[in-house]
Design a protein around this nucleic acid. Structure first.
Lengths: 254, 254
DNA sequence: CGTACTATTGACGCAGATCAAGTTCCGTGG
DNA sequence: CCACGGAACTTGATCTGCGTCAATAGTACG
């Protein structure tokens, strides 16, 4: 049960570096101690000091911020294998709220584990930095989209990114996936109103690129969608070789 | 000359942890090898593989992304002491372009230096993660602002953040600072048109909160500006104690 | 089988984009 | 020292993408 769930996390780390046996066992200590949360539960909230970090083992969650009058911006959707809240230990408090979008299973671990990792497993520590860099790249893409794209482009771009991330963990066979996001959440992720998001989804449907019926989303024309939304790729990065800690660039600077 | 410039970087790291002598000398190896770029020069570009990372020693730079038709989104402004491009080694390529907004001095270092840091100086490696987390927090704030705030709030919020960051490095005495950003750049940072940014600046000026004359910006009423733009703080985090690597939270999770 | 989400549709209004002329501010060279 | 040319900025007029409001209709679940 837990065995299958933590596969996603290890697969994610392994997409960055080839794990050695000792590293696999250390990584396992991050994905032990499973814990469940019901749909709607908050793992932690904006402004709160944080006691633990989590690996999301199964289910979906989202990270969002709110203004004092209630306006909300979804910063990102968290999928199985994603690390949650590791950055909030470094800052004094959580800068965003994380809530479960479906019933979820997470693995909780204490900051002390990260400390040990930095001291004993530098390669795993580097992969933490890598995950962080990846998150930041997603945020940058979203900011570009929200700041400079039309409603049509924003919606399309959002779903293309989601599709690619789900594909990586084998959750979008045949371009179709189960999507527990409501229109309101989608709207809050791309910075527009729910009403307009609804109308824009219909344009996408009518132009035969993307269909959403109930919780099922189907990508109808990926190539066109990527072209018309200026989708640039997932920025996953190259894999790390067996011995190396960081990527050795091909071009050497003086 | 270089001595004074690298103070900012060390001060920044030191705001996270108290550097030990060996750590200071290691950090110095990051700020050696200074190199100059003229205004407008690109350190690296979106899509390019990266050979080096940089510490910005003096001057301003910006990080931005563009869509294929030329629309531009500024992701952030880089100030003295900031780390530039460390994440791009982990991903295959730079996800944004970085250009100099003034003549700048940077210190260039090779990825191998980061590797050594992870192996020999875990506390410094952790501070790298901290800087990354801080960057991500800024990006999240910006996304909230661009996605959910009015033009007035966005402009105000942008300058309040800038003011606080400059204050930390002692570059905004008396609420006044030199700002080499053009209106067009400001507009591209907050996702609006230059014309509207211009009009909005005038509203801020007339309401006696913020004035911008030539390259000089003066914060006239910080408290009101922070309140009306829902500014939440800089998320700098607590300082690390002498022995510890990561923050030990006060509340212990099970 | 009602109560509460979630989504759709239409009407209307406005914040902010776009277009088009200026104007001011420089740095540069004559 | 002044004239010139190009940034950077301002101002006004007009337009439109998207927000807001409001009513309706599925859907899901207890």
């Amino acid at each position: 049960l837990n065995e299958r769930a933590d596969r996603h996390f290890r697969a994610k780390v392994a997409s960055f570096l080839t794990l050695r046996p000792d590293e696999i066992s250390f990584a396992a200590s991050l994905t032990g101690n499973p814990r469940e949360f019901p749909r709607g539960a908050a793992l932690f909230s904006q402004g709160m000091p944080l006691a633990s970090s989590y690996v999301l083992l199964s289910g979906w969650a989202m990270r969002f911020k709110t203004l004092t009058d209630g306006r909300r911006q979804v910063l990102g959707v968290l999928l199985p294998g994603d690390l949650v809240g590791s950055e909030a230990h470094l800052l004094a408090e959580a800068t965003a709220t994380v809530t479960a979008l479906t019933p979820i299973v997470v693995s909780e671990f204490r900051p002390a584990t990260i400390v040990r990792m930095f001291e004993e497993q530098p390669r795993l520590a580097a992969s933490l930095l890598w995950m962080n860099a990846r998150e930041e790249a997603f945020l940058g893409e979203r900011l570009l989209s929200v700041g400079r794209q039309s409603a049509f482009e924003r919606v399309g771009h959002f779903f293309v990114e989601l599709y690619h991330r789900l594909s990586l963990i084998g959750e979008a066979p045949g371009g179709e996936f189960d999507c527990p996001l409501t229109l309101e959440i989608i709207a809050d992720a791309i910075g527009m109103s729910m009403v307009h998001a609804s109308r824009t989804m219909q344009v996408l449907r009518k132009s035969r690129m993307l269909a959403r019926a109930g919780r099922t989303v189907r990508i109808l024309d990926l190539a066109r969608l990527e072209r018309e939304t200026d989708f640039a790729g997932l920025y996953l990065g190259r894999r790390l070789g067996d011995g190396e800690l960081f990527l050795q660039p091909k071009i050497d600077g003086a």
